[in-house]
């Protein structure tokens, strides 16, 4: 497990492409073309209506078994994948690092092969190291869905965000998205830049230079350090989580307080948004750091909408990637 977990924290979007180019798996946002994206959005709409029925369940994945491997902590991604699988009538095994034989130092490969020998039909993988889902996809004979890996990608979060905006506006063509915060450590930023660009939006990022990844010049984005100048232009302000656990080892900002002063989305800053603009955050939020507590609960905030779309989007992904397996 150590041979690929080291030095992978600053992988630019697309660098994993040779490994990720695995048609039956969803490892990065770049694995999806416009056609596939359209299918996912159509399916999401259908599953949203399934979830509103008296019996919010369909037999589409009856007889399939999905291993939900969450080797890093998660609330919304893990629970929404689990619920999505159950709403599709699949059987689910949820595995975490602490409760599995990984804590008895079984190798990751042996762990996932063991699950496969038990007859699992597909995997959802979350890991703190970039590239683990791609590695697992090479070891197993079934599809792997990336549930977030290190600072690499989090494709289903990007799909949730697209579905949320498209539900609101119908299309993202020509929309201006402003991503604010710790882009360097953010897998969400990498997947979302690809997703928003694919959907026809233009993306700018705003962060102090210490929170920008090397190679950002190669991304399809404009870069700025002046948040106050960018806000009036934005249709979407997308706030990234300050990863406080990383700041202890790697002081990329002088203090959270100082970060909040320069880049936190306060009520004062929210006043400069135009009247149709919205605010998004992938969660979990640090209220008072990247987003003021009061802003998160304003009507312009789509944060709760993002969470409620999580189940329908993940149903669409599981259906598309797992329903065709013999």
């Amino acid at each position: 497990m150590s041979d690929y977990s080291a030095s992978s924290d600053h992988v630019p979007a697309g660098a994993m492409q040779e490994i990720s180019n695995h048609p039956r798996s969803l490892l990065a946002m770049g694995d999806l073309d416009v056609h596939r994206l359209g299918e996912i959005l159509t399916l999401t709409q259908e599953f949203r209506s399934v979830l509103r029925r008296p019996i919010p369940k369909v037999p589409a994945l009856r007889g399939k078994t999905i291993a939900n491997c969450f080797f890093e902590d998660s609330t919304r991604t893990r629970c929404s994948f689990e619920l999505a699988a159950k709403r599709l009538s699949a059987d689910v095994i949820t595995l975490t690092e602490k409760g599995s034989s990984l804590s008895k130092s079984e190798s990751l490969r042996d762990t996932v092969r063991t699950l496969e020998c038990m007859g699992v039909d597909g995997f959802v993988v979350r890991h703190h190291a970039s590239g683990v889902p791609a590695r697992i996809a090479a070891w197993v004979d079934h599809p792997v869905i990336n549930g977030g890996d290190g600072a690499h990608e989090h494709p289903t979060q990007a799909l949730v965000d697209l579905a949320t905006l498209i539900e609101k506006w119908g299309s993202l063509a020509g929309a201006r998205v402003l991503i604010v915060g710790d882009v360097a450590h953010s897998r969400v930023a990498r997947s979302n830049v690809t997703a928003f660009t694919l959907a026809g939006a233009s993306v700018s990022v705003c962060a102090p230079p210490t929170l920008l990844p090397p190679g950002i010049e190669g991304w399809p984005v404009t870069v700025s350090e002046d948040l106050d100048a960018e806000i009036p232009e934005a249709d979407v302000v997308y706030l990234l989580r300050m990863q406080q656990e990383r700041i202890v080892d790697d002081p990329v900002v002088p203090s959270l307080c100082e970060y909040a002063r320069g880049f936190g989305f306060t009520e004062e800053r929210a006043r400069y948004l135009h009247s149709e603009a919205v605010v998004m955050h992938p969660g979990p939020m640090n209220r008072g750091v990247e987003i003021a507590a009061s802003v998160a609960d304003l009507p312009i905030s789509l944060v709760e909408k993002q969470v409620s779309n999580g189940v329908a989007v993940r149903m669409a992904v599981l259906y598309l990637f797992f329903a065709g397996i013999p």
Binding site: V58, L88, Y319, A323, P326
Partner: peptide, 22 residues
């Protein structure tokens, strides 16, 4: 109704519904 999510032909490529079930 669209029958995409209710089909019995396990193993064939999944079909995207052509219209809403409502």
């Amino acid at each position: 109704v669209d029958t995409a999510f209710y089909r019995d032909d396990v193993g064939l490529p999944p079909r995207v519904p052509t219209g809403p079930t409502s």
